[in-house]
Write a protein that binds this DNA or RNA. Structure first.
Lengths: 233, 233
DNA sequence: CGAACAATTGATCCTCATCAAACCTTGTGG
DNA sequence: CCACAAGGTTTGATGAGGATCAATTGTTCG
């Protein structure tokens, strides 16, 4: 597969990179395609590469000692992931990256990013901003998990996922479509697929969403926002 | 209050800073002392300053819409906090910082840190490493909250707090003392003070801890680790 | 000593997880 | 094109883990 370096500008961290830097990254990169359900890397692997997702969608997850999974983040095209390894020495990935669809990513050696960062302030700044947004999002989600009831957490999760990986569907009104199983949603909101199923069924009755197999369509975003803020009932 | 610039080396981010940089930071800084229970800043305030805690202990917390609190992090001497504002434009603090004891901190303008970072790679690297460790810790805690039972969460919380802010007490064996209320522990582990009280009472019966008013002494760290890993029973 | 606040303890209840079974949907191979 | 398998989803019944509430009992400090 060929890659146009200019495409890399769509990656937030590279948004203001000079052309020649982009070329270097592309030259250094290896394009890797994997099937749905396969893995880019596992939690605990040496973090030798960071990735830029070119096509498809993926999720970052952690597994507990008992085998339960938690979804930390969903990744969509032109997002960078697995980059924490470029910061620490001898780092291992703190999470596992699994494809939700057939996906393609550009893999670049972490050490090369580290090298590039040494004399390119824009890389430092952009990467720090990205890290800041992670920290803020994780803090928020942590608070939600600690203080909110399931229904609100699921609403918040769906809205967040819609903003991050949702695809606008034309047709009846403004709808956002998410190619996710109940299990995926459960792992992203800290509950079980059973509860997600019940909540979605209830929302469907109320006309807020349309739920299908591995699919959630948001029909009434405003209604979901109300639930997420506890303004309904 | 006078400050020796060299003391700032105890701050992780400044560990390898040249003497003259430390002097600049100290000159630019304002020393602020507050009483127990008072605040360095509130969630939502414009993040004009970042802080270095010189004396005392503090906690970073978030408040939910319903007024419930969550403890994100406890801060001890020579830790930096409130620094995310130096990365984003027009940032506001994503959390509130409250003193757990009478505390003193050095407050320095975020814009000054930002300025210094522009041509001091060590600041970028160190700050990124700090941010990386936050992200990893928050991801871990998020997973714990989503998958672990309360008792294990409380054990993990106590052990983490011990490592972060615990003070070694001599006397009967190796013990670690934490000046925290049940409420504090509850807010750090995502439960209620009632449950924390019951769990600590149980542990005390089993000789693992000694619990007093605003105080938890760990008598048997190994036992707590076993509980945190589910190896007991 | 008394006020203020932290901690305990018991009783109760509710939200959700768990388990089991059946039901759909999609893709595949004959 | 149908039948079947595989895996996602739904639904009900049940119960447990903690939250909540109320009342009491420490503890500390002015």
């Amino acid at each position: 597969m060929k890659m146009d370096p200019a495409d890399l500008r769509r990656v937030n961290v590279f948004k203001d990179a000079p052309e020649e830097d982009l070329k270097l990254f592309v030259e250094k990169g290896i394009v890797r395609s994997i099937e749905e359900g396969e893995f880019f890397f596992f939690q605990g692997d040496p973090a030798a590469y960071f990735y830029v997702l070119i096509e498809g969608r993926a999720k970052l997850l952690q597994t507990s000692a008992t085998g339960q999974q938690v979804n930390l983040r969903t990744i969509t095209e032109w997002q960078m992931f697995g980059a924490l390894g470029a910061v620490r020495e001898n780092a291992t990935y703190p999470a596992t990256a699994q494809a939700l669809e057939p996906s393609t990513a550009l893999a670049i050696e972490s050490s090369f990013l580290k090298e590039m960062m040494q004399n390119r302030p824009y890389l430092n700044i952009n990467l720090m901003q990205l890290m800041t947004s992670y920290i803020m999002e994780m803090q928020e989600r942590y608070r939600e998990l600690a203080t909110e009831r399931v229904e609100r957490r699921i609403a918040l999760t769906i809205l967040r996922l819609a903003a991050q990986i949702g695809k606008r569907t034309e047709g009846d009104g403004m709808t956002v479509e998410l190619p996710l199983t109940r299990q995926d949603v459960a792992e992203a909101s800290g509950t079980t697929m059973f509860t997600v199923s019940r909540v979605l069924a209830d929302w469907e009755r109320r006309g807020l969403v349309a739920a299908g197999r591995e699919r959630v369509v948001i029909r009434n975003p405003h209604g979901l926002v109300q639930i997420s803020e506890g303004l309904d009932q």
